[in-house]
């Protein structure tokens, strides 16, 4: 009489009850999705990452100070003009193939800025806003995304750095 010893690769269907297996898109246990990426080899996507990888993406938050206190509406105008300068660096025929978004928080309230065309900034007040409030500084959060002129990154970074204290 022989004792048969054998090893086998444990997996979800091997039936021996030891149970351990690497979760993945095809493991069948349904426990979780996996993070798709260039190395995930699930074949679910091919080019999504390259669009994001190749884009110019820059985010920055910080304090912007004015040389002297300004009326809130003037402060907002001044900030919008500065941000438009940044937009010009990534625009194609004054159109951004992406967007520049900003959130401006100051004594007067909050305002959101969205620019897709350099000459048509869209400013939306969030909640209450007082045009006549005196503003000497504000908190600015800035997101710049562009799929064009991505080589302009250094000049965009320099312009952004110049905005904040």
């Amino acid at each position: 009489m022989h004792d048969h010893h054998h090893t086998h690769e444990h997996g979800p269907d091997c039936g021996c009850g030891s149970g351990a297996h690497e979760h993945g898109p095809d493991c069948g246990c349904g426990e979780h999705a996996h993070e798709h990426g260039p190395d995930c080899d699930c074949g679910c996507h091919g080019h999504g990452n390259s669009v994001i990888d190749d884009a110019l993406i820059l985010s920055r938050s910080g304090t912007v100070r004015f040389e002297k206190p300004l009326r809130a509406d003037s402060a907002l105008d001044a900030l919008v003009r500065k941000i438009q300068e940044i937009c010009e660096a990534v625009a194609v025929d004054r159109v951004i193939l992406g967007h520049v978004k900003a959130l401006i928080q100051c004594e007067a309230g909050q305002a959101a800025l969205s620019i897709t065309r350099v000459d048509a900034p869209d400013v939306t007040v969030v909640g209450a806003w007082r045009d006549d409030a005196a503003v000497s500084e504000c908190r600015l959060s800035l997101n710049i995304l562009s799929v064009a002129n991505t080589g302009a990154r250094e000049s965009v970074e320099a312009l952004v750095a110049g905005l904040f204290e």
């Binding site: 994001i52 884009a55 993406i57 820059l58 985010s59 920055r60 938050s61 978004k101 900003a102 959130l103 909050q110 959101a112 939306t124 969030v126 909640g127 959060s141 800035l142 997101n143 710049i144 995304l145």
Partner: peptide, 15 residues
Amino acid sequence: NEIGEVGIDDALLRE
């Protein structure tokens, strides 16, 4: 879902 580390859209929607 926002790319970029700064949340702007969620601030608008929280209003």
